[in-house]
Design a protein around this nucleic acid. Structure first.
Length: 576
RNA sequence: GCAUCCGUAGCUCAGUUGGAUAGAGUGUCAGUUUCCGAAACUGAAGGUCACAGGUUCGAUCCCUGUCGGGUGCACCA
């Protein structure tokens, strides 16, 4: 693995700390400088170390500076304030770094990662609640893959709940009348109608309950109806996923039903080992506060008193499958924060029962709720659920209007093509750029704005980079890998930022926070704009060597931007 | 009631092992273009980081309490 800039500095300073007899438990506290005038990186560990050694922190900082061997990495080390060490990187060193495939990054150890995301319920169409999981999960998949991991996508669709009795019973009824294909066109409507039948007609309701039993016991006729329904619904999902430009395919949709045969053995295993017990007729696992790390006493129910299984059972079976059959050593669940307790219980129970080994990483990449502009959960004006496909279409329509206004001379075809990319990109980026844990306010106006941390701004920055090369009749690709000599302050800042790509990506992957990468590219675009303002490239008074250097730096900045957006699941456009 | 997450500029959001004068964008005000895309850039103004204690050389961050809000709590998923 290629060592990151951060790791290099960290090692050098750790060696220096060691040589001064500073205990290894004292952190170096290496971080990016909080301001440009403090250099590129800063080491803040001298203060804490001085405390334990009973030394003056500035004197210790000086000793650290004297003993650290940065061998050409840094130009300047300065002590500031109570004992901060400010590091300014050497321009020749940066030049070498940037020439050395700076964007090719691999993890030190490859993992097999299963990412559980999107996961709509097939009883209905995908709605706004599925946007975050789908978009965040897909970005994580791309990032893990880029880092060299084996990634398995799992769209854990809900295809086995009790409501499928109602749906198949209704489908059966319609099939008798031979108009099922028309009815399944709008799943929401189909669900609503079957619910009405269920509520109004006792005979139908009984038939629906009977269908659940027949379905789960493998009755061929009901199974065929169920299959028909599931296929249609999966088709709807795929349409939405394709529109969003995700990597999900039909093969990734492994629904709850596929774990059916594993459910009984799982319950048996947990009962036999004494982990699960009978409670009020149901089979439950009760975890201690120590095991759960929380005082919540809610039972984890794995079998109902009527013998039926629940999503807890299915999820345990899925863990078993992912660990034992797929060979996963890291499981990532991109699921709503409201499922926190359930997942916590799932993780603890899985390990306690030995279904997953202790070393398996199990992570709940939770996310908050999407709010409307009124700060309340996103709904239609009448308070209904918003279909995801409608939301996507509205984003595209709004993008279309905007593009038409800005570029009245464009051909209709070009407007439509760009709108499809820009609308979806804006929606995805708005989601990805926010800390996934917090609730966020969904606003078409903000996500489609050309100012601020938005997809349009970043895509604009990219097209602007391209236009520099177009203007000069050059190809950006030809400048990738060229030596970049750095002289100016704004060139330096941009170069340092590009050199941080690897560490930012590792951090994003480690903590499952796509917004780290978004923040990085927003800053990248800003630094490029500043560089572009202060360092002319194609003007006649620019010397050839400076022009060449700046073109090379621009090309690399463009490549970094393009790659980063790609890792977020957002394609670039050539003009806007 | 128990559990859990959150409270940062008027608004939308950052703030990564505790570090320097808490940052962006937007909105407001003031500037920048005979030359590479002004969908850009520069500057000003805007904060008791909900409140009160505690730990620390140092707290938006860690601990305790209070107030305010979200969410989850037995056989749906």
């Amino acid at each position: 693995m290629q060592i990151t800039l951060y790791q290099q500095l960290e090692q050098k300073f750790r060696t220096a700390f060691n040589s001064l007899g500073i205990d290894a438990s004292i952190p170096i506290v290496l971080q990016e400088s909080s301001k440009p005038e403090f250099g590129d990186y800063q080491v803040n560990g001298a203060m804490a170390a001085a405390k334990t050694l009973k030394m003056n922190p500035r004197e210790l900082a000086q000793k650290i500076i004297d003993s650290v061997d940065l061998g050409g990495i840094a130009d300047k080390l300065e002590i500031a304030g109570p004992g901060f060490i400010n590091i300014t990187l050497n321009n020749q060193y940066l030049s070498i770094l940037l020439a050395d495939n700076i964007l090719m990054v691999k993890d030190d150890r490859e993992h097999t990662i299963v990412v559980d995301y999107s996961a709509p319920n097939l009883a209905k169409e995908m709605h706004v609640g599925h946007l975050r999981s789908t978009v965040i999960g897909d970005a994580l998949v791309r990032i893990y893959e880029f880092l060299g991991n084996k990634v398995i996508r799992r769209n854990h669709v809900g295809d086995w709940g009790t409501q499928f009795g109602m749906l198949t019973a209704y489908l059966f009824e319609l099939n008798q009348q031979d108009n099922a294909s028309i009815e399944l066109h709008d799943l929401e409507e189909f669900y609503r109608k079957s619910k009405v039948r269920f509520d109004e007609d006792a005979d139908f309701a009984n038939r629906a309950r009977e269908f659940v039993v027949r379905l789960q016991s493998g009755d061929e006729q009901v199974l065929a109806l169920w299959q028909q329904f599931v296929e249609t619904s999966l088709g709807h999902c795929q349409e939405v996923c394709d529109r969003l430009g995700t990597k999900l395919t039909r093969a990734d949709a492994v629904g709850e039903s596929s774990y059916n045969d594993l459910l009984a053995p799982m319950v048996l295993r947990l009962m036999n080992s004494g982990i699960a017990i009978d409670s009020e007729g149901a089979k439950c696992v009760f975890l201690t506060p120590e095991e759960l790390g929380s005082k919540d006493e809610t039972p984890f129910i794995i079998q109902k008193k009527d013998g039926g299984y629940l999503y807890a059972t299915t999820d345990i079976a899925a863990v078993y499958d992912r660990v034992n059959n797929l060979g996963a050593d890291r499981l990532v669940y991109v699921i709503d924060a409201r499922q926190s307790l359930h997942l916590k219980q799932l993780f603890v129970v899985s390990k306690k029962a030995g279904i997953a080994p202790q070393k398996t990483k199990m992570e709940h990449s939770a996310f908050g709720t999407m709010m409307g502009e009124d700060g309340k959960p996103f709904k239609t004006r009448s308070g209904g659920t918003v279909k995801l496909i409608d939301l996507i279409n509205e984003a595209i329509e709004r993008a279309e209007t905007m593009i038409r206004e800005r570029n009245p001379e464009w051909a209709e075809e070009d407007v439509v093509t760009l709108a499809k990319v820009l609308g979806v990109a804006s929606m995805k980026y708005a989601d990805l750029s926010k800390n996934r844990l917090s609730d966020y306010i969904f606003s078409f106006d903000k996500m489609l704005a050309f100012d601020g941390n938005t997809a349009p701004y970043l895509l604009y920055a990219y097209t602007r980079i391209n236009s520099i090369f177009n203007k000069a009749g050059l190809k950006r690709e030809d400048y990738l890998g060229a030596t970049i000599v750095i002289n100016e302050f704004d060139e330096h800042r941009l170069a340092v930022h590009i050199a941080k790509f690897a560490e930012k990506l590792h951090q994003t992957a480690k903590e499952n926070y796509p917004h780290y990468l978004c923040g990085y590219i927003y800053e990248l675009a800003g630094l490029f704009m500043k560089f572009y303002e202060s360092c002319p490239i194609l003007r006649s008074d620019v010397r050839d060597d400076a022009k060449h250097n700046r073109l090379a730096l621009t090309a690399l900045a463009g490549e970094t931007l393009k790659l980063s957006l790609d890792l977020l699941g957002i394609p670039v456009v050539e003009r806007m």
